Each structure stands twice: as structure tokens, then as C-alpha cells.
Amino acid sequence: MATEFLLNGVKTSFDGDPDTPLLWVLRDHLRLTGTKYGCGIAQCGACTVHLDGKNRRSCVTPIGTIAGRKVVTIEGATDARSEAVKAAWVKIDVPQCGFCQSGQIMSAIGLLAAKPRPTDQDIDQGMAGNICRCATYVRIRQAIKDAAKTVEVPA
């Protein structure tokens, strides 16, 4: 039986093993390669996507558990908050190697959705599950602060 879900606003289905991790469905079956494989055990954050608006590690999320739910990948993150984060990433020149950046950006978008005006402590806590092997954490923090300034907080 196929698993149907909304992916980046488009009704999508996967007719395969329901235990297949969402990450592999995205990358191997749907060819959305922006979401990266890092560790496979939800410790590095490279595979972060949004599931029903919340950060989720796709490497440990069985596809069978997301039926009827909304998934957004880096390719589908196009709202004002997402664009502000992406623009801040470019302006601050955050990436070095860039491998972890889609997961970092997705986590930052999720953080700003939950805390539109985060403190340094909020950022540290909200981004703690994302590892950057190049250690660009200072630039990541600054980009999140800059993005927060450009996104209007709804009343």
C-alpha cells in the first residue's frame, strides 16, 4: 500500500517498504538531493526537513509514519521566513564546505518559526542538534539574528 503525503505542496506517494527512511525516499526515489545524509542516527542534523511545520530528522523517520502529513525540504522552503534565512546565509557567507547547510537552514527556519526573536541561548539550544564540521557556528548565529530582523512577526 502506498504512503501518500504532501511534499513541498504537492501530493506525493511512495509505493515501497513503509520502513524506508524518508531521507532515502526523498533522495533516491524523488531525486530531491538537497537533504543530505550525514550520520543516519539523527545526531548531525544534515537531513533536517520540516514535518507538519516542525524540524524532523528524515534519516530516522520511516516513510510509513508520515501518511497524510506535510513535508517541506530545502527545495520547498520558499516562504518569507525561509527566504530571509537563505539571504542571510549568503550575506554572512556562512558555508565553508556547505555539506551541512541545508540541514542548518531548515533548523534555523524552524527555530525562527518557534521563536521569531531568538536570544543567543535560544539559537544555541535550537541549533544544538546540527553539527558543522567546518565550525561556522558564529556565522550561523549571526545569520539567524539577521534573518530575524528582516522577518515581520505576525500580530
Rank of each mutant, 00 (worst) to 15 (best):
M1V: 14
M1K: 13
T3E: 03
T3Q: 07
T3P: 05
E4W: 09
F5D: 03
F5E: 05
L7A: 07
L7E: 07
G9Y: 05
K11P: 13
K11V: 13
K11R: 12
S13M: 10
S13V: 09
F14K: 10
F14V: 11
F14D: 01
D15S: 15
P18C: 07
D19H: 10
D19Q: 15
T20A: 06
P21I: 11
V25T: 13
R27N: 00
L30K: 11
L30S: 12
T33S: 14
T33A: 15
K36C: 03
K36G: 04
Y37W: 15
Y37N: 13
G38P: 02
G38Y: 09
G40D: 11
G40A: 04
I41Q: 15
I41N: 09
A46S: 11
A46W: 08
T48Y: 04
H50S: 12
L51K: 11
G53W: 15
K54H: 15
N55S: 15
R56G: 14
R57F: 15
R57C: 11
S58Y: 02
C59G: 10
T61M: 09
P62A: 10
P62W: 13
I63M: 09
I63F: 05
I63T: 13
G64V: 07
T65E: 12
T65A: 15
I66L: 14
G68T: 06
R69F: 08
K70V: 14
K70T: 11
K70H: 10
V72K: 09
T73Q: 02
T73R: 05
I74H: 02
I74L: 14
G76A: 09
G76V: 06
G76D: 06
A77T: 07
T78A: 10
T78F: 06
R81W: 04
E83G: 00
A84N: 02
V85K: 13
V85L: 11
V85T: 04
A87F: 00
A87N: 02
A88Q: 05
A88K: 05
W89K: 08
W89R: 08
V90G: 06
V90D: 09
V90W: 05
K91C: 04
I92P: 04
D93K: 10
V94L: 06
P95K: 10
P95R: 13
P95M: 11
Q96C: 08
F99E: 07
Q101E: 07
Q101T: 13
S102I: 11
I105M: 10
S107L: 12
S107F: 01
S107I: 12
A108R: 03
L111A: 15
L111P: 03
L112S: 05
A113E: 15
R117G: 09
P118A: 05
P118Q: 07
D120P: 14
Q121P: 12
D122L: 03
I123F: 00
G126W: 01
G126D: 11
G126I: 03
M127H: 05
M127P: 02
G129I: 07
N130G: 09
N130D: 14
C132R: 02
C132P: 02
R133V: 02
C134E: 04
A135V: 12
T136K: 14
Y137Q: 01
R139I: 08
I140P: 14
I140S: 03
Q142D: 12
Q142M: 10
Q142C: 03
K145V: 12
D146I: 08
A147N: 03
A147V: 01
A147L: 06
A148H: 00
A148D: 05
K149I: 00
E152F: 02
P154I: 00
